[in-house]
Simulated scan of single mutants.
Amino acid sequence: MEKAIDEILLSGTILLGEDFEPFEGYLSLRKGVVAEVGSEKIDSDLEGIICPALVNGHVHLGDSVLKDPPYLPLEELVGPGGLKHRILERASRRDQVEGMKRSLSYMARSGTCAFADFREGGIEGVDMLLEAMEGSGMIGRIFGRPDPGSVRVHQRCWGVGISSTRDHPRSLVEEMVEKARSEGKRVALHAGEAGRGDIEDALSLSPDLLVHLTRAEERDLKMVAEAGVPVVVCPRSNLVTGVGLPDVRRMLQMGMVVGLGTDNVMLNSPDLFSEMEFLSKALLHNDRQVFMICTLNGARILGADDEAGAISPGKRCRIMVIDRRSDKMWGVRDPLASVVRRAAPSDVLAVY
């Protein structure tokens, strides 16, 4: 096969299509588009396990200035006036931007191509994240929060990101949601994290996305499923804060679109390989479903499935290549299971 100009040739095991069926062969990538997939032997630019890049459905990158805080109850850690907010108030703008840059760099190098950030700090907070994102090449969806006394988020936000409805006067939350809707923005809320009492309130606002649902009961999950609202779960974060673990298996049985997030950088690194391993081993025991949650589902939730989420001929796609000959991956028999349960950021050879 003759290589064209501006073409990248990859060979090995391709996790192909929306079912991620392993396919032995090669892939031609031209200007970000999967131009060709074939089974013949070729001289390639890189060989390995060729996968869709990962999507982090919920992260707080602004927390990158604070690492490994003491174990505290959720409210004391991240609630209004909690440790996180006190640290951020004292942190310099320079340090906050630098922390976000470093987290973004880590995410990009470790195979994450897209993320949704719940950004505090009002207009200035979003400006800091936009500065940190310059040149990252990542797909970023920012859910911002208004400045005090305002209900409008930054014009470049994809949506408004609201903590629990219990943290704000109901009238203020309704105004924020109404303003976001009038500007064509999405609405996302934390719900059911510390308790189930805010789930019905959150649903009454017709959100585009809910995060956590760790304390949701069967009746709550049924309401969410019937409303057709996607959910992003963050199990490692929930484990650290002691709020329980989401019933992801039941969510999927009910037909929900579920994504995966790493949540606060201060609690866990934005490492989706660790998140996938935990989700698979502790909650699902279904590697294909876990990989779908972390790729295709995440891309759909963020409106980015036209350029991420699955590898298909003719589609623009973000791709990562995993080294199956590394000390950690040597001896792989099931490429999909090994990517989900065993691979680490150090095994990522390249991201295209």
Rank of each mutant, 00 (worst) to 15 (best):
I5Y: 01
I5E: 02
S11L: 06
T13A: 09
I14V: 11
L15T: 09
G17N: 14
E18L: 12
D19K: 07
E21G: 08
E21M: 13
G25H: 05
S28T: 05
L29V: 09
R30P: 02
S39E: 10
D43Q: 07
S44N: 07
C51G: 05
P52Y: 01
A53C: 05
L54S: 00
V55E: 10
S64F: 07
L66I: 13
P70Y: 13
Y71P: 12
L72H: 05
L74Y: 13
E75I: 14
E76P: 01
V78I: 05
G79Q: 14
P80R: 06
L83M: 03
K84S: 13
R90T: 02
A91C: 04
R93N: 11
R94T: 08
Q96Y: 03
Q96W: 15
V97E: 12
M100T: 04
K101E: 02
R102E: 14
S103E: 10
L104P: 04
S105R: 15
Y106Q: 09
Y106T: 06
Y106C: 08
M107G: 15
A114L: 12
F115S: 04
G121M: 08
V126M: 13
M128V: 14
L130Y: 01
M133E: 14
S136T: 07
S136D: 10
G137W: 15
M138H: 01
I139E: 02
I139R: 01
F143W: 01
F143Y: 04
P146E: 11
P148V: 00
P148E: 15
P148I: 00
Q155C: 01
C157R: 02
G159L: 01
G161T: 03
S182Q: 01
S182W: 12
E183C: 02
V187N: 00
L189V: 00
G192N: 09
G195E: 08
G197N: 07
D198C: 11
D201R: 11
A202Q: 04
L203V: 09
L210Y: 11
V211I: 13
H212C: 09
L213C: 01
R215A: 08
E217K: 14
K222C: 05
V224A: 06
A225L: 11
A225C: 13
A227M: 06
S237Y: 03
S237H: 11
N238D: 13
V240C: 05
T241W: 07
G242Q: 08
L245W: 12
D247A: 03
L252E: 01
Q253P: 10
G255E: 10
V257N: 08
L260W: 12
L260P: 00
T262K: 07
N264A: 10
N264T: 08
L267Q: 04
N268C: 05
S269Q: 05
D271Q: 04
E275F: 13
K281V: 09
K281C: 07
N286T: 06
V290G: 15
M292L: 10
A299Y: 06
I301G: 00
A304H: 00
A304C: 07
D306P: 15
A308H: 00
A308M: 06
A310W: 05
A310Y: 15
S312R: 09
P313E: 03
I322T: 07
R325K: 13
S326A: 11
S326F: 12
W330E: 14
G331D: 14
V332E: 11
R333D: 10
P335C: 06
A337T: 02
V339N: 06
A344N: 06
P345Y: 07
S346E: 07
D347I: 09
L349W: 04
